[in-house]
Design a protein around this nucleic acid. Structure first.
Lengths: 147, 147
DNA sequence: TTGAAAATGATAATCGTTTTCATTTAGCGT
DNA sequence: ACGCTAAATGAAAACGATTATCATTTTCAA
């Protein structure tokens, strides 16, 4: 991991190591607060902004992505390469994971073990529309120049 | 509409009528600010909180639902009964609508006119998980007692 | 018409996110 | 090993969207 980060122009620090490790231990649907709490159990000197920044960093290097269920709290989810979605239970507030095949099935057959109506779907796809697909380059926020 | 609201225990006011009408004229992916701006063009005495409250009300009575694309701004979307999702263009920031058949096709074939990889999918489904599906009643925030 | 409940509008509080900045630290070149 | 420079840290403040408060006004049923 240290090498991985170095090739992208980032340093390794004790805090960073702890934060990264804690994030991957938590694994899924991690909010800044959750991660902060976990990190503080091991080192109660780590600042909130450090946790927040490193969570963003984890995303920036492609190891996690944002999950937004619409409750105002940004969560971060390990990237698995297996496309998946979430069922957000309106009662127990759990996030349940589905892989893409399950989702296709549910969408196609409009039925599943879970209780939702078609109106409950919130599907957000990020990418490039037909007009923009040729010129993706402009979106890059920060360019880390390396080989 | 006035009757519709009355049966649910809400009154009709000039502001409310203007706000509702403006929302449905805007139609899709409406933020509070956008609606506020449109409303103020016709009546510059309407307060921001009134617009906000009425937008929530539109949701509460089931005429709209929240759309969250993760940019920190809550948008509201007319309920159409036709389940749909959105492609959020990372470049031009447009929200493009898809119906469920299109989504199924895209998910199943992992290809479309739009440029995204499977990792770009953010699918959020709200409903009830297996444990909670029997007892949906508890979720209701406000109960308007009517026939 | 009138009284009770609801709605309004201005403002302030809240809360999650992001920035700032002075200080510390990592790690490359020597 | 040492010093230097860029990066990282932590505390605190700034920010921005959302939500609550409250005195006043308005709706509408009796």
């Amino acid at each position: 991991m240290k090498e991985f980060l170095r090739t992208k122009g980032f340093k390794m620090t004790p805090q960073r190591e702890l934060i990264f490790r804690s994030f991957f231990e938590l694994g899924r649907h991690v909010s800044v607060d959750e991660l902060y709490d976990k990190v503080r159990l091991q080192d109660n000197t780590v600042g909130y902004s450090t946790v927040w920044r490193n969570l963003k960093l984890i995303c920036r290097v492609g190891l996690a992505e944002v999950v937004n269920i619409g409750d105002g709290i940004t969560r971060y989810d390990r990237v698995t390469n297996i496309p998946h979605g979430h069922l957000y239970c309106l009662k127990c507030k759990e996030l349940i994971e589905f892989n893409v095949e399950q989702i296709v099935g549910m969408l196609a057959h409009k039925t599943s073990d879970y209780n939702f109506t078609p109106e409950n779907f919130k599907i957000e796809i990020q990418g490039y529309c037909e007009n923009c697909r040729e010129s993706e380059v402009e979106v890059v926020e920060e360019t880390k120049s390396d080989a």
